[in-house]
């Protein structure tokens, strides 16, 4: 059964190039590369392999600034059929509640969807809230931290193994549904040469607030109940002490320190 699959991807600053300004308590944006949020590549791979198995179409959707078009082009190079960017000045300042509203409005523009896949969490937002929240907005069941995906009844039913705090659950659900996936689910495919060619020419659909008929009270700063009142760079307090001597002496010194700390 061919499925309409939607994968939510976010463009984030590349963790390897991010530096921090201790005085202002912010990250330094200059010289930072933008990449697809790493775990969203696993979400894309999950979507693409479902399409390989069952047929259908994969759409990648993102809310972000205009340059996020590049991230969507990359997904097309990987094999995604269609890229959609939700971009509008009025989206700026959206917290997770406003983000889920905007993404849901955008996804509803696509017509039918059977499977929505999100990464477990983003590098910058780092909340793991967008997936489950988006499911509520779309009226879907959600399954978080899916570690194994089994297709049953030709795509009429899905079985997942999802991680729990004490082990794992095996759960079943019929489409439509939303899942969030962790980093080690799969190995994301690399862009193919053909894909790269296609990506260059591909039209990325861009919707603004008006296109998705967003209620202006529910987006951006106004639609976001949370406010950041302050940020600070975490002063990492390494009381660095190198223990010296033979193996036996070093270990003895360590044990003394751990006893002092009440850990032994």
């Amino acid at each position: 059964m061919p499925l309409n699959i939607v994968v939510c991807i976010k463009q984030v600053p590349d963790a390897r190039t991010v530096r921090f300004d201790a005085e202002k308590g912010t990250i330094i944006r200059e010289g930072v590369d933008a990449v697809i949020n790493p775990v969203d590549l696993n979400a894309l791979e999950a979507g693409l392999s479902l399409k390989d198995a069952l047929g259908g179409e994969v759409t990648a959707i993102s809310m972000g600034p205009p340059q996020a078009v590049e991230a969507l082009r990359e997904t097309i190079a990987m094999g995604v059929d269609k890229g959609v960017l939700l971009s509008d000045r009025s989206f700026a300042g959206s917290d997770t509640l406003a983000t889920t509203y905007i993404l849901a409005k955008g996804i509803e523009m696509l017509g039918r969807f059977d499977v929505v896949i999100c990464g477990k969490q983003s590098m910058d937002g780092d909340t793991a809230q967008v997936g489950p929240g988006l499911a509520v907005r779309l009226g879907l069941p959600s399954v978080a931290y899916v570690k194994e995906i089994t297709v049953l009844n030709d795509g009429g039913l899905f079985r997942f193994r999802r991680e729990t705090d004490s082990g794992y659950d095996v759960v079943e659900v019929e489409p439509p549904f939303l899942v969030t996936v962790p980093p080690l689910l799969n190995t994301p495919r690399l862009p193919s040469l053909k894909g790269k060619m296609r990506a260059k020419k591909a039209d990325i659909t861009i919707y603004n607030a008006n296109d998705i008929k967003a209620d202006l009270k529910k987006i951006g700063f106004e639609g976001s109940p949370t406010r950041v009142v302050s940020t600070a760079v975490h002063a990492f307090n390494a009381r660095k002490e190198m223990l010296s001597g033979t193996v036996e002496e070093q270990v003895r010194a360590l044990i003394g320190r751990l006893k002092e700390a009440g850990l032994l």
Binding site: A15, T26, V228, S230, T231, A232
Partner: peptide, 13 residues
């Protein structure tokens, strides 16, 4: 914490 513990943010609703 944000950014792998490099930043701390205080948030209100």
């Amino acid at each position: 914490p944000a950014w792998g513990g490099n930043l701390f943010a205080t948030i209100v609703c």
